[in-house]
Simulated scan of single mutants.
Amino acid sequence: MDLVFVKGNQCFNYRAAAVCIEEGHILLNRGKEEDYWFLPGGRVQMMESGAEALRRELKEEIGAVLHVESLLWIVENFFILDKHQFHEIGLYYKGALQGSSFIEKGGTPFVIQDQQKEFLFQWIPIEQVKHLNIQPTFLQNRLEQLPKYTEHLILRQ
């Protein structure tokens, strides 16, 4: 069971995300119909750690094994999406992928069909991230120089 709770127009979401940087590129994804990018990952399930959830999600989504290296950010994110007020707890891990070579660095997006919609995965040059619509927006300025120690951020957008 995913750790997401909805009450009226308010939603609590517990999510884990992977910061995978290889050869000066970062792996990002977005819904095919969406205009913003985000880090790959997904919802944490009941009785699952954030790192376990992240490994499961990346195996399901792109068939790659993720080696989780360190926890970069714990983010309390408050935002509005699709007329819902979100309170999201996000764990952002630095990780390295094994078995992801099918996604060409700097190449065209790789399309994954989910149960409900299509997602595009793409390795994007890290210096281009600051020019993208990426969510949460703090990532625009934080991905080029990752923190040495875990940071706790509170974002209200």
Rank of each mutant, 00 (worst) to 15 (best):
M1Y: 06
M1H: 12
F5W: 10
V6T: 14
G8I: 04
N9D: 13
Q10I: 08
Q10H: 13
Q10T: 14
C11F: 03
F12S: 10
R15S: 11
A16C: 11
A16G: 10
A17T: 02
A17G: 10
A17M: 12
A18H: 05
A18C: 13
A18P: 10
V19Y: 02
C20R: 04
I21K: 08
I21Y: 06
E22A: 14
E22L: 13
G24V: 07
G24L: 09
L27K: 01
L28A: 02
L28F: 06
R30A: 00
R30F: 02
E33P: 01
D35A: 11
Y36V: 01
Y36I: 08
W37R: 01
W37L: 04
F38S: 10
P40R: 00
P40M: 00
G41Y: 06
G41S: 05
G42S: 07
G42R: 08
V44N: 01
M46S: 01
M46R: 09
S49W: 02
A51M: 09
A51H: 05
E52V: 05
R55F: 04
R55K: 15
K59I: 08
I62H: 01
I62C: 09
I62N: 05
A64S: 15
V65T: 15
L66F: 05
H67P: 01
H67N: 15
V68W: 02
E69Y: 09
E69I: 12
S70H: 11
S70M: 10
W73Q: 08
W73Y: 15
I74F: 04
E76G: 07
E76F: 11
N77H: 15
I80N: 14
I80W: 10
L81N: 12
D82W: 00
K83S: 15
H84R: 14
Q85C: 12
Q85I: 15
Q85G: 07
H87V: 07
H87P: 01
H87E: 09
E88V: 06
I89G: 00
Y92A: 06
Y92H: 02
Y92V: 14
Y93P: 07
K94Q: 15
A96I: 13
S100V: 08
S100Y: 00
S101L: 11
S101M: 02
S101T: 10
S101K: 10
I103F: 03
K105N: 02
G106K: 06
G107L: 08
G107I: 05
G107W: 04
P109G: 01
F110V: 07
I112T: 09
Q113A: 12
Q113M: 04
Q115T: 09
Q116H: 14
E118L: 05
E118F: 05
F119H: 06
L120H: 13
F121H: 04
Q122D: 04
Q122C: 12
W123Q: 05
I124G: 02
I124Y: 04
P125Y: 05
I126F: 03
E127F: 12
V129Q: 06
H131R: 11
L132W: 03
I134L: 11
Q135D: 01
P136H: 03
F138G: 11
L139S: 09
Q140S: 15
Q140D: 11
N141W: 08
N141F: 10
L143F: 08
L143P: 07
Q145I: 13
L146D: 04
Y149W: 07
T150I: 03
E151I: 06
H152S: 13
H152E: 13
I154G: 00
L155G: 00
L155P: 02
Q157W: 06
Q157T: 13
